[in-house]
């Protein structure tokens, strides 16, 4: 039995050495639960990606501890290109706020995928129709306006930037994930939250109110919603998602992955599903994404320091 086992093992090793990458399914670790924002972006991406990679791409949701469990799993995976890591800006934040020991520099960039702008969203039970009304009210009663957020992550940093730019004081209540925040804001249990264009349907139905979008220019999907810039607040914020591979992944493998990724991002079907989610496709190659990550890392460190969460 044992001899047989080793025989099989040897054969499979010999086979692996000869075949070109990729010769078996590739695992893409999404460090959040299925059905979350990140998962909803990487599932359609996976479909397009496997078409150009010529191998099945299996999404593995490894949730827990603000994305850090999945990050740790991805970091420990063999650097052979068969394990990839779907990442967004949380990795910088959890590193600087001391939640995790995993940094983006433990990986090598493959490509960036998409960027989702934040929209400040208010409960219909509040009386504000616009940002100035919100600011006036918040100044009148500092620390009384409640914001639902995943503390220490992007949905916390976005309102914190608004808070700082407008010179107001908000009160944060912990609601993990967009789904929970939406249930709470619909019932009026929180006043504000970080939303995005996926919630447009509820805004149209009068169940929610978009106050302002954190982009440079107005979005064509919601032309009535002003940008923060127009209102005199310097707030531009979006969450960028991309693909990383473990640190020692060989260059040839990275190049194959990069090529398939860039082609996948050009797919019409992928663009359509991103549009449905209020997200822009952002195709940066290895070099471009690497430079982007370096820049964002610096920004996030400064940000963590500004809002008083820097632990490193």
């Amino acid at each position: 039995m044992k001899a047989l086992a080793w025989g099989i093992a040897f054969l499979s090793l010999a086979g692996a050495a000869q075949a070109a990458f990729p010769e078996r399914p590739v695992k893409l670790i999404v460090p959040w639960a299925a059905g979350g924002d990140t998962d909803n972006i990487f599932r359609p991406f996976g479909q397009a990606f496997q078409k150009h990679l010529g191998q099945t791409v299996v999404i593995a949701n490894i949730g827990g501890a603000s994305g850090t469990v999945g990050a740790r799993e991805a970091k420990a995976a063999p650097a052979d290109g068969y394990t990839l890591f779907a990442v967004h800006d949380f990795i910088h934040l959890t590193y600087y706020t001391g939640v995790a020991d995993t940094s983006y520099s433990d990986f090598r960039p493959v490509c960036s995928v998409a960027s989702t702008p934040s929209v400040l969203t208010a409960s219909p039970k509040t009386k504000w129709q616009s940002i100035p009304e919100l600011i006036a009210d918040a100044k009148a009663r500092p620390g009384a306006v409640t914001v639902g957020a995943t503390l220490g992550s992007t949905s916390h940093f976005f309102p914190a930037i608004v808070e700082k730019a407008a010179g107001i004081k908000l009160k944060y209540v912990s609601y993990d994930g967009l789904a929970q925040r939406m249930n709470a804001i619909l019932g009026g249990h929180i006043d504000l939250t970080d939303g995005n264009l996926t919630q447009k349907g509820k805004v149209d139905a009068g169940q929610l109110r978009f106050l302002a979008i954190a982009t440079e220019k107005r979005n064509a999907e919601i032309p009535n919603v002003p940008t923060f810039r127009e209102l005199g607040l310097d707030v531009v914020y979006s969450v960028t998602r991309g693909l990383l591979a473990p640190k020692n992944t060989p260059d040839a493998v990275l190049a194959t992955l990069e090529g398939a990724c860039i082609k996948a991002l050009a797919e019409e079907s992928f663009a359509r599903s991103m549009k449905a989610q209020g997200t822009e496709v952002l195709p940066l190659d290895r070099k471009g994404y690497g430079a982007f990550l370096d820049r964002v890392d610096g920004e996030n460190k400064a940000l963590a320091q500004e809002v008083g969460l820097l632990r490193r």
Binding site: G64, A65, T68, V69, R72, V99, L151, G152, S174, D176
Partner: peptide
Amino acid sequence: FGSDPIMSVPRFTMGSQFLVGGFP
């Protein structure tokens, strides 16, 4: 056990990375 649900502070993990994820 594991990260506290509010601020992800590791709780009762005794320094082990395995326990940070808590007991699913």
